[in-house]
């Protein structure tokens, strides 16, 4: 963990391709995530941004290209082999938050959060629970530790899901349209949590349709279109002053 120098990328994707049968969804995507960097992935639905972010923790297996974690290539196996990083290791250090929360319904909020540290990281239960209570407090859910997901609102569920991902103390957090399934009035509470994480220096890749939020929190924005990164740059150039026809057409839908 200490062999990474200041600005060397933590997670790198080089020429990632993904096909589902004859359909090529990703046509060679590059992304390099530096420590503490927040990157927003925007674009129309079906442009491949969700598939791409799911390739970054190997929930989808790319059909081409290379992934690197701390400069080491990621292998096909669950465990580390020689110089390649195993998928299990990658996922332990790269957390993910999903559009539909995917909380474990048979566990309370607290049990959801300690599940990873106990089962995967083999932490002692007491230590894991202490940390989990801390995290749930950070996302404003101290009172909901013993509540089952069925009795939480969408925004609360998503905040538990964020706490669950953070409990593994990830070096990178992948957020896949985490506010898209929420009622509009609940979006803010989740975005606030993410904004605080960004301020605290968490490295994140965020797929989002919240343009104002992306512009505010991201250092870089990637505009996905038909399986490629059509444009890439600072929020200033991509969101505030778009030049290409496609990008303007896409953004126009958010400025009504």
């Amino acid at each position: 963990m200490n062999d990474v120098t200041g600005d060397a990328p933590i997670l790198e994707a080089i020429g990632i391709r993904k096909s589902f049968g004859p359909l090529e969804v990703l046509k060679g995507i590059d992304l390099s995530l530096g420590r503490g960097e927040v990157v927003a992935l925007i674009g129309p639905s079906g442009s491949g941004k969700s598939t791409f972010i799911r390739c970054l923790n190997m929930l989808e297996t790319p059909t081409g290209g290379t992934l690197r974690f701390r400069q080491k290539p990621i292998g096909k196996d669950f465990r580390d082999r020689g110089d390649t990083v195993g998928i299990g290791t990658l996922r332990r250090h790269v957390g993910m938050v999903f559009q539909h929360f995917n909380l474990f319904p048979h566990m309370t909020a607290l049990e959801n959060v300690v599940e990873g540290p106990i089962t995967v990281a083999r932490k002692p239960r007491r230590e894991a629970e202490e940390h989990a209570r801390d995290l749930l407090a950070q996302v404003g859910l101290s009172e909901k530790c013993d509540t089952y997901p069925a009795h939480l609102s969408g925004g609360q569920k998503q905040r538990v899901a964020i706490a669950r991902a953070l409990a593994m103390e990830p070096e990178v957090l992948l957020l896949d349209e985490v506010t898209s399934a929420l009622d509009p009035e609940l979006v803010g509470e989740v975005l606030n949590v993410i904004r605080r994480l960004a301020d605290a220096g968490m490295t994140m890749a965020i797929v989002t349709h919240e343009m104002a939020f992306a512009a505010d929190v991201a250092r870089r924005v990637l505009f996905f279109d038909q399986g490629t990164v059509a444009e890439e740059g600072t929020p200033e150039t991509i969101i505030a002053h778009p030049t290409s026809e496609r990008l303007r057409g896409f953004l126009a839908r958010f400025h009504q």
């Binding site: 474990f104 089962t119 990281a121």
Partner: peptide
Amino acid sequence: DRGQREAALALGMSRGQ
């Protein structure tokens, strides 16, 4: 739901876990 398995795998669990 498929998302349950995905959430478990995303935490670093093996398929068996």
